[in-house]
């Protein structure tokens, strides 16, 4: 299923409901639903944050096949931002030296089973898969 969402953090509730409806209909358990929702948010908010000069909607596709959930997020007229690159997040320093930078991508890399990035003609497309079990 496909739906377009306004490029705004306030779209997150609608994105959650959209995905939740599909995941529940396919009897996807909480152990997969949580990381799917988290990965969707991290990618969506990344797109909102790092492409401030465009106001086009962001497309979201959710497909469930054989128990695996595949989500694609697509945005047009944006600069390249490869989310598969290392996040650079600091998860080991003492508190005084910690900054939250890169944590979103770091989490993303830890919770999905497959992550792909495609950039062509200023169209950015991110596809991730979360397997069940």
């Amino acid at each position: 299923m496909h739906r377009q969402f306004a490029r705004d953090y306030d779209s997150l509730a609608a994105i959650y409901e959209f995905a939740e409806e599909i995941l529940a209909a396919n009897e996807i358990g909480e152990a997969v639903r949580f990381p799917v929702h988290l990965a969707m948010e991290e990618l969506f908010t990344n797109m909102v944050k790092y492409s401030p000069d465009t106001d086009g909607d962001i497309g979201v596709d959710v497909v469930v096949e054989g128990g695996a959930v595949t989500v694609t997020l697509t945005e047009d007229d944006v600069d390249e931002f490869d989310v598969t690159r290392p996040s650079g997040a600091d998860t080991t320093s003492p508190l005084a030296e910690r900054t939250p930078g890169g944590l979103g991508l770091h989490l993303l890399h830890n919770i999905v089973d497959k992550l792909e990035y495609d950039y062509h003609n200023r169209r950015s497309r991110v596809i991730f898969t979360k397997e069940s079990g």
Binding site: E41, L95, P100, L103, G104, L107
Partner: peptide, 19 residues
């Protein structure tokens, strides 16, 4: 039920201030 990196950022910022 749920927290994302945005929420983690708030916790970290508060923890650093309190420390």
């Amino acid at each position: 039920e749920y927290i994302s990196s945005a929420g983690l950022g708030i916790l970290l910022k508060t923890q650093k201030r309190l420390a």
